[in-house]
Simulated scan of single mutants.
Amino acid sequence: MRRDGPAGHIAFFGHNAKDAAVRRRAVAMQRAGFEVTGFMPRRGPAAEAPFALVDLGETEDNAYARRIGSVFSGARRALAQRDLLARADLFYARNLDMLAMALLLRRRGGFDVPVVYECLDVHHKLTGDGPAARLLRGIEGRLTAASDLLVVSSPRFEEEHFRRHYPGRYRHLLVENRLIAGDAYGPRPEAFPTPEPGKLRLGWFGNLRCRRSLELMKRLARAYPDRLEIVLRGYPALSVIPDLDGEIAPFANIAWHGRYRAPEDLARIYGEVDAVWAGDWYEAGHNSLWLLPNRIYEGGYFGVPALAPDGTQTARWLSDHGCGLLVPEPVEERLVEAVGALLADPAPLHARRAALAALPQEVFVEPPEMMRTMAAMARAARSGHQG
């Protein structure tokens, strides 16, 4: 294997070259000293990337049949850049279809490199007991066993999915969705504004894909029309919320401000709210219970506590760090009560802000050493496989 630079050269197989999380991971690799070349399809028109990029063509969200075909067509395009692939000493694949492509390329090209599988979400098609789910898990199990390292963004993905279905067939590393060291998001705040008495500003940021969460925001807006301001930022999943403007139009105290830039806008948008909503039932019962959303790290860095449904991995994380407010079922009633209690007495919110401020920066920010640890583990696992 050939190494370029102090850390090495990573061929990064991402599901969408324009995805912010994909770009954030590539930047984290670069900050750790790696050269990164992306081999990626994209959603929509081509756009510049902050890393060298081999464009594998256009694909679509949720077009699973086409994405299976794109594994083979993408592999052909990638092999046309054989010299670039040959320079890599690690293949890093994000999502299952990209893992299939990376393993296919390693076999067809004869490349002696470790392959890392990063699982950010466990798709609902992989859960359940039906024949389709069992078939897909059979595929994932074989691909996971053929890879050298599994990276998960939440411990519950490993506990509830991989350990249950593929025990003993993988080695794993937890890499949470933290901010990336060196990004221009500014220093952590040393003091916090005092909310206007009897007022509260609640944010719901990121991928606005949860119908139940939107209904909760509307319920809160009705309950406290003059005392609660709800701020939405990000992009709605059109398959779930096709007309966000129309849905919030009747509520003077709900405002949607569209997309934002991360990390550039984070200090401003979190500085404008007192708390953030961190619930998600997009894939209720499985992925939504297990995930750890970006907003707990982003908000936590800026001293903004999160509210989350009890019983989730998000709630466990907040409880372990003593920095959030947990809402038990029935959430529709208890969240209204919790917000009402904070409007009457914001002391619990202040206490959580103090707890966030006392936590070390590494809780919210991924150090460069994490990507170097990932690479070292993958190389060691590959050596073990060959031995």
Rank of each mutant, 00 (worst) to 15 (best):
135 L>F: 15
385 H>G: 15
331 V>T: 11
259 R>Y: 09
95 N>V: 00
71 V>S: 06
109 G>K: 13
277 W>R: 08
61 D>G: 14
219 R>V: 02
186 G>Q: 03
215 E>R: 05
171 R>Q: 14
316 R>M: 03
77 R>I: 03
55 D>P: 04
133 A>W: 03
295 R>P: 02
188 R>W: 07
346 P>S: 14
54 V>P: 07
367 P>R: 06
6 P>M: 00
46 A>T: 07
254 I>G: 03
247 E>V: 02
140 E>T: 08
249 A>K: 04
58 E>V: 02
126 L>P: 00
198 G>N: 12
262 A>P: 01
211 R>W: 06
257 H>E: 15
385 H>K: 15
211 R>S: 12
225 P>V: 01
1 M>F: 10
382 R>G: 10
356 L>W: 10
74 G>Y: 09
260 Y>M: 03
285 G>K: 05
378 A>R: 11
261 R>L: 09
377 M>F: 10
242 P>Q: 10
299 G>Y: 13
82 R>S: 11
240 V>M: 06
280 D>L: 04
199 K>I: 07
313 Q>I: 08
146 A>I: 08
70 S>E: 11
321 H>Y: 15
297 Y>M: 15
368 P>R: 04
163 R>S: 15
262 A>K: 09
2 R>Y: 05
29 M>V: 07
129 D>W: 00
281 W>E: 14
204 W>M: 03
273 V>G: 02
147 S>T: 12
9 H>T: 08
183 D>R: 09
5 G>S: 01
346 P>G: 14
145 A>M: 10
64 Y>L: 14
40 M>R: 11
343 L>T: 04
118 E>T: 12
252 A>V: 09
139 I>A: 11
53 L>F: 04
40 M>I: 13
190 E>S: 14
157 F>K: 05
29 M>R: 07
349 L>Y: 07
111 F>R: 11
139 I>H: 03
301 Y>G: 12
185 Y>L: 12
51 F>N: 01
9 H>S: 00
340 G>A: 09
368 P>V: 12
324 G>T: 03
79 L>K: 06
330 P>Q: 04
65 A>S: 05
176 E>M: 11
25 R>E: 15
354 A>H: 00
12 F>P: 11
173 L>R: 15
145 A>F: 09
195 P>V: 13
100 A>W: 01
210 C>W: 09
274 D>Q: 09
41 P>D: 08
355 A>L: 01
171 R>I: 02
21 A>I: 13
12 F>H: 13
35 E>I: 00
262 A>N: 14
265 D>I: 05
242 P>M: 05
341 A>L: 06
75 A>G: 13
374 M>P: 08
76 R>A: 08
38 G>N: 03
49 A>E: 02
162 F>P: 10
305 P>I: 02
277 W>K: 12
228 L>V: 06
313 Q>G: 06
2 R>P: 13
261 R>K: 06
20 A>L: 12
321 H>S: 02
285 G>R: 00
156 R>M: 15
206 G>L: 06
221 A>S: 08
166 Y>P: 05
187 P>A: 13
100 A>R: 01
93 A>Q: 07
152 V>M: 04
350 H>D: 12
73 S>E: 06
203 G>E: 09
55 D>N: 08
